[in-house]
């Protein structure tokens, strides 16, 4: 493939990115002059390098979320599973997990997205518990973002077509302005891969709901600037689901399932590997 330098470099008559090359050469020269025993200057302030998994326990504070017949509240249930997931990840050592809240506090959806975007991760997992008008509905479901209205539909990811991939548009990465409230639209494809794997895993556990994988204009995901999935851990309106969800075994199994899928997705390249 023929190398084509970006337009900005071509404008200045450069065939390679000048600044990074110059900076690298200067650093190597300084290192050689200082010798192996020289002290390193303090590192400059760099952008956050988190790149782990952001787990968002839904609701909190005055917002109890759904409430089961026995009184179990969605906000407490999802916080418990999120903390288990964080502990399991720490134990495993394969991926770092951060929570948007680690206590019973109220956060707006924009505050959650801001917290996630300020320290970029490879995946955003919003944990929820479901409810249905019918007590028969049961099972785990996974949601991904899909724009709702006519204007938002313009940012939908184009469906895959057979044949060679179209050439990349002649714009630089820095020119790709994205509306805050539609940041998730550019991550839908990758999020969908993870969602399908989660559904497969939950199906193997024998507990998938009627929608299995659903796509909707999900507000908890829309402004998140990384692949995002919303996991509904079960129906609090269903007696069997509610009974299972209060058990530590079930909560641990759900947390383990999410962690396994994240690690497997990193392993096979569906998600990028972050620092461990």
């Amino acid at each position: 493939m023929r190398y084509a330098p970006p337009a900005l470099w071509r404008r200045h008559g450069l065939a390679v990115p000048a600044m990074p090359v110059l900076a690298l050469a200067s650093a190597l020269l300084a290192q050689a002059q200082a010798g192996p025993g020289a002290q390193q200057p303090p590192a400059a302030v760099s952008p956050p390098s988190f790149a782990g998994v952001v787990v968002d326990p839904g609701h909190g504070g005055d917002d109890h979320g759904a409430v089961g017949a026995t009184g179990i509240e969605e906000k407490a249930l999802v916080l418990g599973v999120a903390q288990r997931l964080q502990s399991l990840a720490a134990l495993h050592g394969g991926i770092r997990v951060r929570l948007t809240r680690d206590d019973d506090r109220a956060l707006t959806l924009d505050q959650r997205a801001t917290a996630a975007n300020s320290s970029p991760g490879i995946l955003f997992v919003s944990l929820h518990a479901n409810f249905s008008p019918s007590p028969k509905t049961a099972g785990v479901e996974v949601g991904t973002y899909r724009a709702a209205g006519p204007s938002a539909q313009e940012v939908r990811v184009a469906p895959r077509r057979s044949g060679p991939a179209p050439p990349a548009p002649p714009v630089s990465r820095w020119a790709a302005l994205v509306r805050w409230d539609q940041a998730q639209a550019q991550h839908v494809e990758r999020a969908s891969v993870v969602a399908q794997r989660l559904v497969e895993r939950f199906r193997a556990m024998g507990t998938v709901g009627p929608r299995a994988w659903f796509q909707a204009p999900l507000k908890p995901l829309s402004a998140v600037n990384m692949p995002g999935v919303l996991v509904e851990l079960g129906y609090l309106s269903n007696a069997d689901d509610e009974g299972a969800l209060v058990s530590e075994e079930r909560q641990a199994a759900l947390a383990q399932a999410v962690l396994d899928v994240v690690l497997a997705s990193i392993e096979n390249g569906a998600l990028p590997a972050g620092p461990r």
Binding site: G149, S151, D181, P217, K219, P220
Partner: peptide
């Protein structure tokens, strides 16, 4: 062709914390 939901005459973020009501629904 499409419907926008309002509550008490005002735009709201969601009904129950999940679906974004900022745009009209098809």
């Amino acid at each position: 062709a499409r419907v926008r939901l309002l509550v008490e005459g005002r735009e709201v973020e969601t009904l129950a914390g999940h679906l974004d009501l900022a745009e009209p629904f098809l």
